[in-house]
């Protein structure tokens, strides 16, 4: 990794990262703070990996920290290219299976289970 030696270096790295993020394909982000893990996020992650493999789809699986809604953990966000990020709450292994099939494979948001959508991105 090349070291950052100036503000210009930092700006360049920032721009490169933003471009990388704009080109990203489908992503699923699991809330992996202590609150998420305590509520079962590790199981959610495991089932998610199995389901993605089973359907053989291209999905980037990421993690994030606590967004504040600890009551709703485990939280799982789905972000499809050029679309807002949809947050699902109190995610169970069964809900993961539905999300992978209906949202990731078929492209339909599970309106009954979605909590919110994050509008501004990057």
């Amino acid at each position: 990794m090349k070291k950052i030696e100036s503000v210009a270096d930092l700006s360049r790295i920032k721009q490169e990262q933003i471009q990388r993020q704009e080109k990203r394909g489908a992503r699923v982000i699991v809330g992996m703070g202590t609150c998420g893990i305590a509520a079962g996020a590790k199981t959610v992650l495991q089932v998610l990996e199995e389901e993605v493999q089973r359907y053989d789809i291209q999905v980037e699986i990421c993690q994030t920290g606590c967004i504040g809604m600890c009551e709703q953990e485990p939280l799982l966000d789905v972000q499809l290219p050029n679309q807002g990020r949809i947050t699902y709450g109190k995610v169970t292994p069964n809900l993961v299976k539905r999300i992978v099939q209906e949202h990731l494979v078929e492209g339909n948001i599970l309106e009954d289970a979605a909590l919110a959508r994050l509008t501004e991105e990057v």
């Binding site: 982000i29 809330g31 703070g33 990421c62 993690q63 994030t64 920290g65 606590c66 967004i67 504040g68 809604m69 939280l75 807002g84 949809i86 947050t87 948001i109 309106e111 979605a114 909590l115 919110a116 959508r117 994050l118 509008t119």
Partner: peptide, 27 residues
Amino acid sequence: QVPTYQELDFYNKQMRFALRNCGRIDP
């Protein structure tokens, strides 16, 4: 039909400085 974060009661009065990236980025 899915509300934005800003439309949720839990978030609409929040203002995030210290937590600006929490739950948004991969830490």
